[in-house]
């Protein structure tokens, strides 16, 4: 079985890209399953079930950050996918705070970015892009050729090893080369390990202390004009 983990900012077209991919993967004779990780609302699992009749699951991260939630549930999800005799486990996750990345070793990591989000986006989103195997750039029909080129150059600047697929996913344009890469990805490893280091960011905000100002917090804190430091025992 192979695992494909797909991240990206909201509304970039992750679901549209995956729908096109799943359609082609099924046409190739494979059996995929789909897991959606989101914060508090998602209907994508129902869409996949209705359109393709494949096993689906969704999990709301709620109080957990979605990337952390992903780490927690992915072991169970792989087991579930094996029980369903799946060839591919597709995981779609929100990835909101841009510090973590949800990709695991021995699986394919895909980040979906929209060309319309501005030429500086590749410089802003950190490990979600830098640790991905493939960057899918969507909505390419809406921007100028020049901006597509700048966007691409900046993706490569930020993540030298990443391979780029430009798509207009609404019409399935550019999906073939992505599917080829997914089919050629490695089998999932027996022990699952996160690809990147999660940030050391434990502070009292994390545990629900609402007062504003670093002086009222402990753990890893930071003032406006200084770098982070540890405050406490």
């Amino acid at each position: 079985m192979k695992a494909v983990i797909c991240a990206g900012p909201p509304t970039t077209g992750k679901t549209t890209v995956l729908k096109q991919v799943v359609k082609k993967v099924i046409r190739e004779g494979f059996h995929p399953v789909y897991l959606k990780v989101d914060v508090q609302y998602a209907v994508e699992d129902e869409l996949f079930k209705k359109e393709f009749g494949i096993p689906v699951k969704k999990v709301y991260s709620g109080e957990l950050c979605p990337d952390h939630c992903n780490v927690m549930v992915l072991g169970d999800a792989v087991e579930w996918a094996r029980k369903e005799k799946a060839d591919f486990l597709f995981v779609e996750t929100a990835g909101l705070c841009l510090r973590c990345s949800p990709y695991i070793e021995g699986s394919l990591g895909i980040v979906v970015l929209e060309a319309t989000s501005g030429m500086n986006l590749p410089r802003k989103i950190g490990p979600m892009l830098t640790l991905a195997d493939i960057a899918v750039v969507t909505k390419i029909d809406l921007i100028s050729q020049a901006e597509r080129e700048v966007f691409r150059a900046r993706v490569i600047d930020a993540a030298a090893g990443v391979s780029i697929c430009e798509t207009n996913a609404l019409y399935g344009i550019g999906i073939d080369s992505l599917v080829k890469k997914i089919l050629a990805s490695p089998e999932i490893a027996s022990s699952l390990v996160l690809r990147g280091n999660p940030p050391v960011g434990t502070c009292t905000v994390c545990v629900g202390k609402k007062e504003v100002g670093w002086q009222r917090h402990f753990g890893v804190v930071r003032p406006l004009e200084n770098d982070i430091f540890y405050r406490g025992e």
Binding site: T116, D141, L142, S144, Q145, E147
Partner: peptide
Amino acid sequence: FITQHTNFLS
């Protein structure tokens, strides 16, 4: 390809 929707966003 310059379509009817192609635009500059910058």
